[in-house]
C-alpha cells in the first residue's frame, strides 16, 4: 500500500502485518519534469542557458549556481556528444561478477556544460576511447516513461 492511499478499513491503519517498508518517492523538480517530458514525448534534449556565465546546462536547471540567476532560456540540444571519460564495470550492483563488462560513460552533449552518465552500446569495450563521438539511442515512443532509462544507451555516431 502506498502511504498516500487512504486506509479503507480502520484496522489496517492500526496494525501492519510484517515489516514496514520504507522508501522515498522523488519528484523530478521543475527543470527535470520539463526535461523528461520533452524526452518522452518528442525525443528531444533540452538545456537552459545562463546568459551571464555563458553556460548551457544539460540536464537543465532553473538557476545558475555560479551567479544565482533564474534561468529562463530553454534551448534544444542534439542527442549527440563525446565520451568525456568511461569505465568498464565488472561487477553489478549485487556484487556479481560480470563476464562482459558494462561500459559506463560520462557523455558531454554538444555545446553543453555538464553531461549525462549512461551506458554505451553497439560497441566493444576495446573500441571505446575518450573523445569518441556518440549519439543517444532512445526507446520507441510508446515505451518511454519519462526516465533516464528512456535512453537505451549511447552508441558511436553514425554518419
Amino acid at each position: 500500500m502506498l502511504p498516500l492511499e487512504k486506509p479503507q478499513q480502520v484496522h489496517r491503519a492500526l496494525a501492519w502485518q510484517g515489516e514496514i517498508p520504507t522508501y522515498n518517492i522523488y519528484t523530478f523538480g521543475i527543470a527535470g519534469e520539463r526535461f523528461f517530458r520533452e524526452l518522452k514525448e518528442h525525443g528531444r534534449f533540452l538545456g537552459t542557458r545562463c546568459p551571464a556565465c555563458h553556460l548551457l546546462y544539460v540536464p537543465p536547471r532553473i538557476y545558475c549556481e555560479r551567479c544565482f540567476a533564474s534561468l529562463e532560456e530553454w534551448v534544444e540540444v542534439p542527442g549527440r556528444g563525446t565520451v568525456f571519460t568511461f569505465t568498464l564495470a565488472y561487477y553489478d550492483l549485487d556484487g556479481r561478477r560480470l563476464e562482459h563488462p558494462d561500459i559506463l560513460a560520462l557523455v558531454r552533449l554538444e555545446g553543453a556544460h555538464g553531461g549525462v552518465l549512461h551506458r554505451l552500446g553497439e560497441v566493444e569495450p576495446g573500441q571505446v576511447a575518450i573523445g569518441m563521438p556518440v549519439e543517444a539511442v532512445l526507446k520507441p515512443p510508446q515505451e518511454r516513461r519519462g526516465s533516464i532509462l528512456d535512453i537505451l544507451y549511447f552508441r558511436p555516431t553514425r554518419r
Binding site: 568525456f84 571519460t85 564495470a89 561487477y91 560513460a105 532509462l149
Partner: peptide
C-alpha cells in the same frame, strides 16, 4: 542523483573509475 543516475544501478566505484581514467588520459 535520484532522477538522473540511480535508475542506471549506480555503483560508487564507477565515479572513481571515471575520474581516475580522466586523470590518466
Amino acid at each position: 542523483d535520484h532522477t538522473l543516475e540511480r535508475p542506471l544501478g549506480t555503483n560508487l566505484l564507477w565515479i572513481f573509475a571515471l575520474e581516475m581514467h580522466r586523470y590518466m588520459a
